[in-house]
Design a protein around this nucleic acid. Structure first.
Lengths: 343, 343
DNA sequence: ATTAGCACTCTCTATGTTCGAGTGCTAATT
DNA sequence: AATTAGCACTCGAACATAGAGAGTGCTAAT
């Protein structure tokens, strides 16, 4: 007995179905959903053969079949050539991907990540509004012929870096000179103003024009980005280690609520006047936060800009410890960012 | 009826116990573990009062009590002054925290994160051994008077940045000059060699000495770091959305296995000769990977250094789609990093 | 004021039972 | 000879029931 074409076809159907449903696949399903020309009895016989051949497994006698590692192996090796993504989607992925690679994390995000690791709870961080931040200096660092790292230092001390691709040849001293000139021109401008300025700025050198264009794009990107997601979430997976979420449904709900960031933004904004606050359970007034507490600290980024950093966990929480850690995090962040500002 | 000292004491005991066990607290527990001078019956009466006062809740009649938001509020406001961390621990936290803030994420890590988001599975990334990478150039970017960003470009194009604090005043042109000199001196050295070089390098200017010391520290830190954790894991939480892990025990096991990275390092290393590989279930030979598959792609970082990036998910997985995404990720990464290298 | 004792309540676990999905086999059909 | 209809059979999921145990509230004794 060996794998004829029909067996292959049935096997593929079983794998496809199992991949999408995660439920053992019965003969009836195959007959009605995939291969309508054959009755379930026939499929049954074939599936029995496939089991004997070592491709399918029955979790128990009266269940459908589940594919094996051997089956997946065959599937990967010779059954899914046609399934590759369409060109267009592939391209979109690629671009999405590359654009994400080009923005490195910033300090506040790193802080939130560290906070989450230290406390073993989820953490959130809200950046100050970047529209209000003013550029302090700007420097291009050559990575190679075709790439440069752009470092933007704002009056909040929050520096953002991004990779800039140019096709032309880059020369160290040239880049430095451009950096100095740009710093001079863009100092004390907001990102929006800088972008507008750069868009109308014309040089006769095509290379410089290219650099300027790239920076203008970057400024635009930073600004757009700051509008929506200046709230970031980290370490939500830590929640799973607590018995209150041993029930998977609860766990999913919490993770989902966190990911949606429902209401969190408002909470962090509204409380921007106090340095430190603790919202226990429903106190926060956020839907679905009934058994979650959120502790927040605010950090300074010079010139009176403020951001918020916080810890989210179950109401059952070692408050003293977490409060302490959070307080330290807030201070450290203020310190670093404000040191950056004291220019 | 109001909160006398004894009630407060009992309430604190209940909260403390619940915080550490997550199980409703009974009167007997309090009497035996916290307040041995009183019998359970007395505690019972007091707890009944505390419930009436709105601090405790009974999930059901014959269960112990669970603290309320109101209880936690009281706890936070006036019961845990003494619990603050000891000075020393506090300090350790602070340093830990600041040192983490000073290292920004690198490109490969960002790639893995993006990959995990796109596929909705966990992802891993192994950086090439950093001991072997050679420095290409090094630049100091002034952030303010007391801080500079150090950007190290290696022949793998992997640039690392870190914040350097110096107490003295920094001057733009001076930093640029130092950068040029350092680049010249350190080019083609490995991190270790650079560190050794910097340690014996003596200038008569105290400021420059300080900068050099800072950079030497950084080089040391990068090298130490690369030794252990050049394997990083992202997005393990995605696993929870799949029905195979609806059972919480299974979910914990998988998450734990992933976090331990058991065997993954070897797998990624061993397969460094092939560009792309798919390990289905037990094929990987890794303990506990029976129902996990791992797909890996390798990326180039110039000079023949290779890193690996991969996706980990249940054996039931839409292989074609994931393979495609992974392939794109690998190529994009190679492209970016190799572009960086083509200096 | 405190505590021992006891009846009571309610969850948790184990056990039993039913229902249904899916199988394998046999006999009939094409 | 291949396919299919029919049927008995198996086994897990879901539901129901009973018993054990933890914890309470109340009363009476200390």
């Amino acid at each position: 007995m060996e794998l004829d074409e029909r067996k292959m076809c049935i096997l593929k159907a079983v794998i496809d179905d199992y991949i999408s449903t995660a439920v053992p696949v019965g003969s009836r399903t195959i007959s009605s959903k995939y291969i309508s020309g054959l009755s379930s009895a026939t499929i049954r016989n074939e599936m029995s053969d496939l089991e004997e051949l070592g491709y399918l497994v029955q979790p128990h006698v009266s269940a459908g079949r589940v594919p094996n590692a051997k089956a997946y192996r065959l599937y990967v090796d010779s059954m899914c050539e046609g399934d590759s993504l369409v060109e267009e989607e592939s391209k979109r992925f690629r671009e999405d991907f590359i654009s994400r690679l080009n923005q490195l994390n910033d300090v506040a995000a790193g802080a939130a990540e560290a906070l989450s690791d230290l406390t073993q709870y989820a953490s959130v961080v809200m950046m100050p509004k970047q529209e209000e931040l003013r550029i302090n200096s700007l420097q291009l660092v050559p990575i190679n012929r075709a790439t440069a790292l752009v470092v933007v230092v704002t009056d909040g001390g929050i520096f953002r870096d991004s990779i800039l691709h140019v096709s032309d040849m880059i020369d160290h001293d040239g880049l430095y000179a451009i950096s100095r000139i740009l710093t001079e021109r863009l100092q004390n401008k907001t990102l929006r103003e800088a972008q507008e300025f750069l868009n109308v700025f014309v040089t006769n050198a095509p290379f410089e024009q290219q650099v300027l264009g790239g920076i203008a794009d970057l400024a635009g990107k930073l600004e757009r980005q700051s509008a929506n997601d200046n709230l970031k979430l980290f370490g939500s997976h830590h929640m799973l280690q607590y018995p209150e979420y041993y029930d998977v449904d609860k766990a999913r709900n919490v993770l989902h609520a966190l990911r949606e960031k429902i209401g969190l933004i408002d909470l962090l904004k509204d409380n921007a006047q106090s340095d430190f606050s603790v919202h226990i359970g429903a106190e926060s007034g956020i839907q679905g936060m009934g058994d979650l507490s959120i502790l927040t600290a605010f950090y300074e980024v010079g010139h009176g800009h403020r951001g918020a950093i916080g810890v989210v966990g179950p109401t059952r929480m070692p408050y003293p410890k977490v409060m302490n850690t959070l307080r330290i995090a807030g201070h450290a962040l203020s310190e670093i960012l404000t040191a950056n500002y004291n220019n």
